[in-house]
Simulated scan of single mutants.
Amino acid sequence: MHRLYAFALAAIIALTGALFLPTFLESQGVQAMELKSIAFEEGKPIPVQYTCDGPDISPPLTWSGVPAGTKSLALICDDPDAPMGTWVHWVYYDIPAEAGGLPEAVRPDEKPSPGGTHGKNDFRKLGYGGPCPPGGTHRYFFKLYALDTILGLGASATKKELLAAMEGHILEQAQLMGTYKRR
Results as ranks from 00 to 15, higher is better:
152 G>S: 10
9 L>V: 10
149 T>C: 06
116 G>R: 03
155 A>Y: 12
101 G>R: 04
91 V>Q: 07
180 Y>N: 02
48 V>F: 03
164 A>S: 12
74 A>S: 12
67 P>L: 01
105 A>M: 05
100 G>P: 08
180 Y>L: 04
31 Q>E: 15
18 A>Q: 06
87 W>V: 01
35 L>E: 09
153 L>S: 07
154 G>D: 15
49 Q>M: 13
71 K>Q: 14
116 G>W: 03
104 E>V: 10
128 Y>D: 04
56 D>N: 15
157 A>M: 13
154 G>S: 14
152 G>V: 10
38 I>Y: 00
80 P>L: 02
109 D>F: 08
111 K>G: 02
57 I>N: 11
163 L>I: 03
111 K>M: 09
154 G>T: 14
31 Q>R: 15
31 Q>H: 15
88 V>R: 10
149 T>N: 08
44 K>Q: 15
28 Q>I: 12
48 V>H: 01
27 S>P: 00
113 S>P: 10
183 R>S: 12
18 A>H: 09
105 A>T: 01
170 I>C: 13
35 L>N: 10
122 D>V: 08
91 V>H: 05
33 M>V: 12
89 H>I: 00
10 A>R: 00
121 N>Y: 04
47 P>D: 11
123 F>D: 15
138 H>T: 05
182 R>E: 06
148 D>M: 09
126 L>R: 10
162 L>T: 02
114 P>V: 01
6 A>I: 03
164 A>D: 10
70 T>L: 00
140 Y>N: 07
130 G>W: 04
173 Q>Y: 12
112 P>M: 09
133 P>M: 12
181 K>Y: 01
140 Y>P: 12
121 N>L: 07
131 P>A: 15
55 P>D: 12
26 E>N: 15
110 E>S: 14
110 E>A: 15
97 A>P: 11
63 W>S: 05
